[in-house]
Design a binder for these strands. Structure first.
Lengths: 193, 193, 193, 193
DNA sequence: TATGAATGAGTTTTCATTCAT
DNA sequence: TATGAATGAAAACTCATTCAT
C-alpha cells in the first residue's frame, strides 16, 4: 500500500508546508518535491497528479479530526459534553498547527470547484458525526428537540469555521484556544433555546 | 467618475454572469468583454487589471447589502428586530440572484489570498454594522450583555455564510427563504443565552 | 478567413523549414515561431494546436499536387499522357523543394498514428484522381482492362513514393528529375501488360 | 552470445506485441518489460538502450525474410519464378503475423530519422538479394535488359510495401494473400516491357 | 543476473495586458 | 474612447535510464 510507505506521508507534509509558505498557486510540484527532499518525478510514483496530492492532504489531515471525533462520541458523557469536546478538539488541533490551519482555512479554498466538491465529500464524514451528536442531544432533551438538524449543523460548523478563518486572516494575532469556551457557550445556547 | 459611466456597470454585470456561468478560472477577460459587448482592450479603460474588476464586483454588490443594512438600522425597532431583518435581507438578496450567490459563495473564494484579503476589508463595513446591532442589543439587554462581540459576530456571519454556501453547493435544490426564520430563531437563542 | 491572412502561410512555410532542418521531434513551437518571426502565442491565433499546424502543412502543400493533377486531367490528351504528366509533376515539385521533400517523405511519417490517419485522408483526394486516370485508361484500352485498380494505384503511388524517399534518404545525391522518364516507362509497362 | 539466451528473444517478441498493441510512442520500456515478464532493469542487461531493442526487432524479423529469400534464390528455377516466390513469401509472412505487419508497416516508421536510417541499412541486405534476382533476369533476358536496376528495385519494393501498408491501414479488412498474384503479374509486366 | 525505486530534463499551451490604429 | 492582434512568461507531467541491493 502506497500510503503506508514513508515517502507518502513525507510528501503530504511537504505539501502542507509548501502551500502554507508559498500560497496555493505558488506551490508548484517542484517546490513540494524540494521540500520533501525527493525528485519531481518521485511525486508521481505516489500521487496520480497534483490534485491527487491536495485531496490526499485533506483526507489524511481530516482523518485526524474524524478519528478524534469518533473517540469523543464513544467516550463522551452527555451530548453537551460531546459537542463541547468536539469544538475544543477542532480548535486545539488547528491552534497547534498553523501551517495546517493556513492550508485548510485559506489556501485549499482557492482550488477549483471540482476539487472543492471532492474536499466537501471528505468533509461530509465529519459532519455526519456532528449530526449524530446533535440528533442524540435532541432525543435526550439536551438540545431543542424541534430544531432543524441541518441548520443546527450549519450553525455549529459555520461558526467554528468562521472563527478559525478570522484567526488565520488576522495572522494568529490572538490566542485561538482562549476563544473556544466562549464559542462553545454561545453555540450551546443556540441549540438549547 | 468612471463608475458612473454606463460601461462600468455593464462590465461589472458581465463579470458576474461570466464567472457564474464559466467558473472563476474560466472567466477570462475575453469572455467578460464578449459578455459585456465590448472589446478586450476597452475593459482596461475602466479597470486597472483583472483583480480590479473582481474587487469592484464585490464592492458594488456588497454596497447593496450595506445600504440595506443602514436602512434597517435606521428604521428597525428593537435590536432583535434589526438583526432579524438583516438576516432576512441577506437571504432574500441572494435567493433572488443565483448568479450573484454562486459568485460570492463559491467562485470568488478561488481567488488568491491577496484578493481575498481585499474582499475581506470590503466586508468589514458590513460587519461593523452588524457589530453595531449586537452592541446595541447587549446594551439594551436584548442580548447577553457579557458576550464577546467578535465571537457573536462570527457566529452570526459564519452561520449565514455556511447556510447559503450549502444551498449553492446543493445547486439551489431547496428553498433558501424558508430556512431564514429557523436560522434567525437559532441565532437569537445563541445571543440571548 | 484565417488561412487568407499573410501570417497563416508565413507560419506554414516556417514549419516546413523548421521541421526539415531540425527534424520532426525537434521542431518545437518556439522554433517554428522564431522561424516565422512571430511570438509563440501568435501561432495559436492561427492554429488550434501543434497537430493542426502539421495537418495544415500537409493540406496546403498537398493542395498544390491536387490542383496540378486536376489541371492535367482536364488538359491531358490520352490517359497515358495524363499519367506521365502526373508522374513528372510529382517529381518536379519535390525535386524543386527539398525542404518539402524531406518533410513529406521522412519527417511527417514520424507523427503518431492518429495524425497519419488524418494525413492519409488528405492524400485520398489525390489518389482518387489517380484512380480516375487509371479507370479511364482501362476503359479506353490504353491500360490492361482487367487489372485491379486498387493494386494498380498502389503500384503507381508506391513506386513514386519509394523512389522519392530513397532520393531523400540518399541526401539528394543524384538528379531526381532524370529518373522520372524511367519510372514512367516502367510503370506504363506494368499497366499495359 | 547474448542473442542466444532465451530472454533475448523473449524481450524481442514482447516488444513486437507491446508496440503492436499500444503503438510506438505508448510502448514504454516498462510495458515491454511487463509483457516479457522481466523487470525494467533487466532489459538493459540485454540491450544498450530502447533504440537498440527496436533495431534488434527489425534485424531479427528481417532475418527471416533474408533467409527465405536466400533459399528461394538457391532453389528457384527462373528469375521470374524467384521474383514470384519472393513476392509470395513477403505477403505470406506478414499476412500470418498481423502484429509484425503493424509494427513494420506503421509503428516503426514513427521512429526518428536516425533510427530509420539504421533500419534502412538492415533492409539493404534484403534489397541486395532482390537486385541479384533482377540482374540475373536482365542477363537471362527474362526482364528488360536495358532497365535501371535501382528503379526496378524501387518499383518492386515500393509496390509491395504500399500494398501491405494499405492492407494494415485498412485494418486487415480484405485478404492480403489473394492480392499477391495480381501484384506479381503487374510487376512482372513492368519488368518485362 | 535480476530487481524496481528513484531520477530530472524538456515542451505545449493559456491568457492578462499592451499599443498601433 | 474603442479596438483586437500580438505578446511571452510560466508549470505539470512522462519516461528512458541508473544503481544499490
Amino acid at each position: 500500500m502506497k500510503r503506508d510507505k514513508p515517502k507518502y506521508k513525507q510528501i503530504i507534509d511537504a505539501a502542507v508546508i509548501a502551500i502554507a509558505e508559498n500560497g496555493y498557486h505558488q506551490a508548484q510540484i517542484s517546490k513540494i518535491a524540494k521540500q520533501a527532499g525527493v525528485a519531481d518525478g518521485t511525486i508521481y510514483l505516489y500521487f496520480k497528479n497534483k490534485e491527487d496530492i491536495l485531496i490526499s492532504v485533506f483526507q489524511e489531515k481530516m482523518g485526524v479530526f474524524v478519528e478524534s471525533l469518533q473517540e469523543i462520541i464513544k467516550n463522551g458523557e452527555s451530548s453537551t459534553d460531546k459537542l463541547s469536546q468536539m469544538i475544543d478538539n477542532h480548535f486545539n488541533v488547528l491552534a497547534n498547527d498553523r501551517h495546517l490551519a493556513t492550508v485548510t482555512q485559506l489556501e485549499l479554498r482557492q482550488s477549483n470547484k471540482d476539487l472543492r466538491l471532492k474536499i466537501n465529500s471528505i468533509l461530509k464524514e465529519y459532519l455526519k458525526l456532528l449530526d449524530e451528536i446533535l440528533i442524540e442531544g435532541m432525543f435526550k432533551g439536551e438540545f431543542n428537540s424541534t430544531m432543524d438538524v441541518r441548520i443546527a449543523r450549519q450553525m455549529v460548523f459555520g461558526t467554528i469555521d468562521e472563527t478559525i478563518t478570522s484567526w488565520v486572516m488576522n495572522e494568529f494575532r490572538y490566542d485561538l484556544i482562549e476563544t473556544a469556551p466562549k464559542v462553545r457557550h454561545m453555540l450551546l445556547n443556540g441549540l438549547k433555546g
